[in-house]
Amino acid sequence: MADGPRTRVQYRRHRSDHSFNDPSSEAGKEASLARSSEPARSSTPGSAPGTLLSAADVARVVDRMAHQLIERAATGGPASADGGLADLVLVGIPTRGAPLARRLAARIQAFTGTGVDVGTADITLYRDDLRLRGVRALEPTVLPDAGIDGRLVVLVDDVLFSGRSVRAALDALRDLGRPRSVQLAVLVDRGHRELPIRADFVGKNVPTSRSQQVKVHLAEVDGVDEVLVTEATGTEAAQ
C-alpha cells in the first residue's frame, strides 16, 4: 500500500497503489482516527511549509542521536568494557526506520570503534487499523542472532505522530522476546499523540498542524536525505 496520504482518503487496495517508496509521512503511516474535526484544528499554526532539514542537517541530527545513544548505553546497564554497547540493539521500524537504525549503528561504530546489533521489526501484522487502511505488503523482520532477551532495545522510526506505530512495535517486540528495557528514537517528533507514548531520543521536534504532512526522505529509500513539511491538499485535509 502506498504510504502517501492518498491511501487515507481512498483506501484502495490495487496494485498500482503498492508503491513502497513513497515518501514517508506520518499521515500515511498512522491512520488518524480523528475525522471531521480536522479542518477546525488545521488552522492552528504549524511550521512554515518547506524544507525542514537538509541533507547536512539530517547527518548532523543522526550524529547527535548516535552520541546520545552511546551515552545512554554507558549509563543504563551493568558496567562493561564496551560501554554497554554490546547490550544495545537498534530495531528499525520499516520502511525508513530500518535504514535509520543502520545509520545510527554505523555512526556509533565510527565514534567508538564498536559495532552495535541492528534489526528490523515489521509491524504490519500488529496494526490495529488494518480494516481502515487495507493490506500492505509485509517487510522483513530480522533480529540479531543474539536476540533481544535481556538487552536494551531502542526502536527507531522516522516520524513520531499518533504513537500507534510504536504501540504496534511494542506488541511485536513482546512476541519476539523479553528486552531488559525498550526505548524509542525518532528523527522527527511532530506531536499530536493519540497514545501515552513519548520518545527517548528525538532528532528534531517540529510543531505542526494536523493538516500538514511531514515527509522524511532518506537516501537508501528515496535517493536523497531531507525532511519536508507540506500542506495537505483539499480532500486530504478533510480527512
Binding site: Y126, T141, L176
Partner: peptide
C-alpha cells in the same frame, strides 16, 4: 502475476517473522 507474487512474498515474510519464535501467533 502481481497478486500471486504478493501472496508468496507475504508468506515468506510471515515465515521469517515467525521463524524460531516461541509464540507463533500474530494479532492481525
Amino acid at each position: 502475476r502481481d497478486d500471486a507474487t504478493l501472496v508468496l512474498d507475504t508468506a515468506a515474510q510471515i515465515d521469517q517473522a515467525l521463524a524460531g519464535r516461541e509464540v507463533k501467533k500474530l494479532p492481525t
